[in-house]
């Protein structure tokens, strides 16, 4: 039996619970059983990226304590997984015991598409989508976790869907956490270009693996009343043909 422990990052938990729901229904369809430790909070990435490592280390210790008994942890975000896998060990340079625990839990924490394709070797999730899709590569997912082929493989197997690459698919959307609020002009110029490339691709939906980027893209789309659907890959992969059970 395949079992996964869910780490549902703060943005999905609080703002986009439907993405978590999609992940649950996708896993149910694939026969993956789940648990969800209720004490999970934030991975500490916002503090780490802003330089507040002591504070990030507190969140990291909490994550490690919450998840270290789990065999396989799956999270629908590349940047949170990158935080756990790559930056947690850096936080405990002077605490060898914690460092060892961080490395151990980091090895068992996977991003959703890397879990499906690399760990479970699943390519066809039995999903259906009627429309044209383009994919946005999130920076941390692609560059720090090396995950770019996995989501494309999964998307290519979605029945009914046509896939088109957009220009600059792996150019940053301008989110960058606090960067987007501290330097709004630069961030906006970046998301404007990203949205232009999405529109130019002709796709009716943009799919991504990180709600941070998608929140930024969606926020710009709705503000400018542009009609493109924004979907987390879990939502796409959980999709079924209308009327199908």
């Amino acid at each position: 039996m395949t079992h996964a422990t869910l780490f549902i990052q703060c943005i999905v938990d609080g703002m986009y619970p439907e993405v978590g729901e999609a992940m649950v229904s996708l896993f149910q369809r694939l026969g993956i059983t789940m648990d969800y430790p209720e004490n999970q909070t934030c991975c500490g990435q916002p503090s780490f990226n802003a330089g507040y490592r002591k504070e990030a280390a507190k969140a990291a210790k909490h994550y490690i304590e919450t998840f270290e008994d789990s065999e396989t942890i799956v999270c629908p975000s590349g940047s949170c997984v990158s935080m756990v896998r790559h930056h947690y060990p850096e936080l405990f340079e002077n605490e060898p015991a914690w460092k060892a625990r961080a490395i151990a839990v980091g090895k068992r924490t996977f991003e959703l598409t890397e879990y499906l394709v690399d760990v479970l070797h699943i390519e066809n999730t039995g999903a259906y989508y009627d429309g044209t899709i383009t994919y946005h590569d999130s920076c941390h997912l692609k560059r720090y976790l090396g995950v770019a082929a996995q989501p494309r493989t999964l998307i290519s197997q979605v029945r009914g869907a046509t896939f088109v690459e957009m220009k600059g698919c792996d150019t940053c959307c301008g989110f960058g956490g606090a960067f987007s609020t501290k330097y709004p002009d630069i961030s906006t110029a970046m998301v404007r270009e990203k949205v232009k490339n999405i529109l130019d691709s002709g796709a009716d939906a943009v799919v991504g693996c990180d709600m941070g980027c998608l929140m930024n893209i969606k926020g710009y789309l709705t503000r400018n009343t542009l009609n493109v659907r924004v979907m987390h890959i879990a939502q796409l992969l959980a999709g079924k043909k209308a009327g199908a059970v």
Binding site: D13, G14, M15, T181, Y183, P184, T188, V191, M215, K218
Partner: peptide, 16 residues
Amino acid sequence: GWTRSRDIQPLSQTPF
């Protein structure tokens, strides 16, 4: 800084 050019999703009343 965010809402000058973008909307933002409110928190759900029923989190995951």
